[in-house]
Write a protein that binds this DNA or RNA. Structure first.
Lengths: 294, 294
DNA sequence: ATGGTTCTCTGACTAGCATCAGAGAATGGA
DNA sequence: TCCATTCTCTGATGCTAGTCAGAGAACCAT
């Protein structure tokens, strides 16, 4: 299995990676081209570019200066926060970015070109699988403090989504509360999933000693669905609940969250009588954790 | 379709490419590590390294000098041709190469690690597909002179294979000859397929004006089977035969070449009476070229 | 207002990757 | 034997990528 992955790595870096770099440099250093691309049509703050491309601030500054000298970029202070510099593409910069776009299309087409129709279809299908699964493999799940920016972001998205999906909206003040302290060891814990540094999912646990633990705040970003992330978060929460003493985990959910309900059922949860008075819940589930996980 | 390929390129170069580079440099410049790897356990001539890695001779020399200084490599003149330098790994060099090997395994494992069993199986299956099809897309098919080294190599392999597969061996002297001149414009032509510079297949055409053209010397290297290369060569030969005036193409083959017979049938060839006295043939095929190809 | 923090920029520097020109040894064919 | 060619190496040189330290402006909480 590992040998197959290595073969894949070799072939792909040779055929795609090298070509990619070569195609995307239009007589310009690769770093500059990449930066030009990432600035995008709308312009971006230097701050966010630095975070995403993971570049040294001095280095990035120099790259920008070089693009500016070439007349492809203009920079200026951000209105809201004048420490922040915003970079925007000029007409010439936009034109060059378009050209990069076209080159990338050509590169992709050149990969497909020598193949028959059927081979192309199979290649594209296989590429989609690989891309999806590599993305899934790139998601990191780790405990986080509920007050962290990433955790806050996730919970905010979670609330917003419930509010848009529940028939009568969702007001967290009316729901059974889960304060930060409840989701922080030793009372509980919170897991946050990140992809390339951006938060894309979360899940939390309220512990009650050997009494059933409660699963809370299960959320997966729109962009990260179909990667099996919900199941991964759920499995990880169960594992941690078990090692922290729980023999049973339970949770409640709303009837509009059909994919979540499906997940719980397929993960071995069974529906039980209401065990609390959560006003937004229609279904209550619980699962006895396997003995070997405890 | 192109957009999907581009997504794939982005995700893969990010997750595989970058990691690859990072993993494979053990405190040593990437170029040196790669060179160390390519020298292999058996040692290689500087000449072949330069050809494969496509490096400047001065640059390569410097890299070798650096590895030599580090005690990982020894170089010496080749016995057969004392202009050529042969590089061999020392014990230390072999040990470092082993370590690179292990790192590459780790990298591959780290890609699979966060996934479930099922996801891994799917990922590996999709990777195999992508790898196979990208390899297929990397094969270049181009006309070549029958006297070129690559063409000679292919025909040599072709003869060797027939000799090993035919029940009574194969002696080209007893077969109907096809001299270089017959396979060179305007009398005919020869196509050679190469993968990363190495010849992996061939096919030839003997033209007879508007009379049926003959297909000869169809061969695909063991290592390049399953890529649809036989079909691609055949299609390309037919196309060229049509543009050069032929309305029909024909060929003869031996009963032991079952996959070739299958290819001809599925490509629309029908079996006909013997049209020549080729002693090694059991089946004679012909195909009328579609009018729009002429 | 003040002190700590955030953000960007400049200067100084290093390592790596690469190319070109030319020298010198070995080879092979006329 | 001689001349063209092949092969490798050294020297000179330039660009790219990236790091580190520190300065100065803007911001924010107190």
């Amino acid at each position: 299995m590992v040998a197959r992955v290595r073969r894949f790595n070799r072939v792909v870096t040779q055929r795609v990676g090298a070509l990619n770099d070569h195609f995307l440099s239009l007589g310009r250093p690769l770093g500059e081209s990449r930066l030009l691309w990432e600035i995008g049509t709308e312009g971006r703050s230097v701050r966010s570019l630095r975070a995403q491309l993971d570049l040294d601030s001095g280095y990035l500054s120099r790259l920008l200066r070089s693009l500016e000298r070439a007349g492809l970029v203009v920079t200026g202070p951000d209105q809201a926060d004048r420490r922040v510099t915003v970079a925007r593409l000029t007409q010439a910069g936009l034109a060059e970015r378009d050209q990069l776009d076209r080159r990338a299309d050509e590169l992709a087409a050149s990969l497909l070109d020598p193949l028959t129709e059927r081979q192309r279809d199979r290649l594209v299908a296989a590429m989609s699988d690989v891309e999806r699964l590599l993305t899934a493999a790139g998601v990191r799940v780790a405990p986080a403090d509920p007050a962290d920016a990433a955790a806050r972001f996730c919970v905010g998205e979670y609330v917003a989504e419930l509010n848009s999906r529940f028939d009568a909206g969702f007001d967290p003040a009316r729901s059974i509360p889960a304060a930060d302290a409840d989701l922080r060891p030793p009372a509980g814990l919170m897991l946050v999933a990140t992809l390339n540094g951006a938060p894309v999912g979360c899940g939390a646990l309220k512990l009650h000693g050997t009494e059933p633990a409660e699963i809370k705040r299960m959320w997966v970003a729109e962009s990260a669905r179909g990667l099996g992330l919900g199941r991964r978060l759920l499995t990880e929460l169960e594992r941690r609940a078990a090692t922290l003493g729980a023999r049973v985990v339970r949770l409640e959910t709303n009837q509009t969250l059909t994919e979540a309900i499906e997940l719980y059922r397929s993960a071995g949860y069974t529906e039980v009588e209401a065990f609390d008075a959560e006003p937004y819940a229609h279904h209550w589930f619980e699962k006895t954790l396997p003995a070997d996980a405890r």
